[in-house]
Every structure is written in C-alpha cells, then in structure tokens.
Amino acid sequence: MLVTLLRSEIRMNLRQTFSWATPLLFFVMVVCLFPLGLGSDPIALHQSAAAIIWVTALLAILLSLGNIFQSDKEEGFLDLLLLSPHSLTLIVLAKAFSHWLIYCLPLILISPILGFLLHLSPYEVGVLIITLLLGTPVLTLLGAIGAALVIGVRHQGLLLSILIMPFYIPILIFGTGTMLAASTHLVINGYIAVMGALLLMTLAFAPLLTGIALKIGANQS
C-alpha cells in the first residue's frame, strides 16, 4: 500500500507540469542573484558559495512544503489516509519521501552546476552534494511537521517559514561548516557523521509528530 501511495504521489506531482520545476527555478534564480549583488570577484564568491547555496536551498524547500498536505486536505484524501488501517507514521514517511524525490532531488542534481558558477573546486562540489543529500531530507521532514500544524490556515506560506526556520539552524551550521572544512582541506568525517546523526534522529521523531499534527489538522474545518 505504501509503495502504491508513493507511486501515485510521484505520478500526480509530475503530471502537474510545472509544480516540480518551480522550486528548482527559484533555487537557480536566487543563486544567480547573489553574484549580481555581491560583485563578480571569484574569491568573494567562492567564500560565500556554501552559505548562498545552503540558504537558498533551505528557502526553496520551505516554499515547496506549502503544498505537501494542503491539496490532500482540500480534496478529502487526507481523511482517507487518516482512516486507513496503516500506520500514520509510515504514511507520513512515504509522503515526505516522495516530496523529497520530486522537489529536493532536482535541487541536488542542479547544485554542481551552480557550485561551478560560484567557483567551487570539484572536490568541494562533491562535498556539497554529500551534505545536501544528508541535509535536505532533514529539512523536508522538519518542514512536514510545520506544514501539518498550519494545515487549513489561510496564507500559510510565510507562517510556515517563521515556525520552522529556527529548527533549520543546526543543519545550516553543519552543512556550511562541512564546506568550510573542505575548502581548507581539513578532515570532514566528523561533520558528515553529525549530519547523519541529525538525519537519523529526525527520521525517528518527525514522522510521528507530523502524524499527531495531521490528526489535529483534520479536525479543523
């Protein structure tokens, strides 16, 4: 059943032609704005590249999360999911995973190009991809809690951002910290391990809390 859910989610999101491309375009365009604002000095760009890419990815994910549960709620599909005999935690996990595949994976795939545009070396680009692979699922899972909390609230986009952004700070710090260590050729295993630990912890807690929040959200008219 979970596989079916996963497959239908992916198919549905891909068929809405542009919905999967919007966060991607946002990501690319905002990253391209920074050289225009900071100036074209390669050294300055190289220094702030990690921060630019990470902050922009974070914002793009926050923007994409607005619709993770909203359309299900409007169509009544959410009530069906809540009624189904399967564990709500697993259902949330499946939804979050499909959301990550559709909206975050393209960001990660395009990030090498952006990294080269901001004068990162190939080694740094590799590290960037690893940190993004470990970090973006955490961002998605934490954001899902927020999206479930504000379900049914009008104008929820900005509200969701201010609720969730403080929780994104550790991932941002370790994501950019890894990049800083990589640029000075220090050992990065420790940083990667901490990001992995954060991912495992979020995987354990976030779907459970999202499930509880969804049950509350379903009561709201």
Binding site: L142, I145, L149, L163, P166, F167, I169, P170, I173, F174, G177, L198, F205, L209, I212, A213, I216, G217, N219, Q220
Partner: peptide, 27 residues
C-alpha cells in the same frame, strides 16, 4: 485545536533547543 497544535510546536522546540544551542556553540 490551537492548544494541541501549539503543544506539538513547543515539544518540537524543546527537543531542538539543545541541538540548536550546541550547534551554535560549535559554530
């Protein structure tokens, strides 16, 4: 609903506060 939603947010916050605190220290 408001009480329950806010409770979840407060719990998420208190789980995250130590993590945020130590990562900021480290940063």
């Amino acid at each position: 609903n408001r009480d329950k939603a806010c409770s979840i947010l407060a719990l998420v916050g208190v789980i995250n506060l130590p993590i945020i605190h130590y990562s900021v220290n480290w940063w």
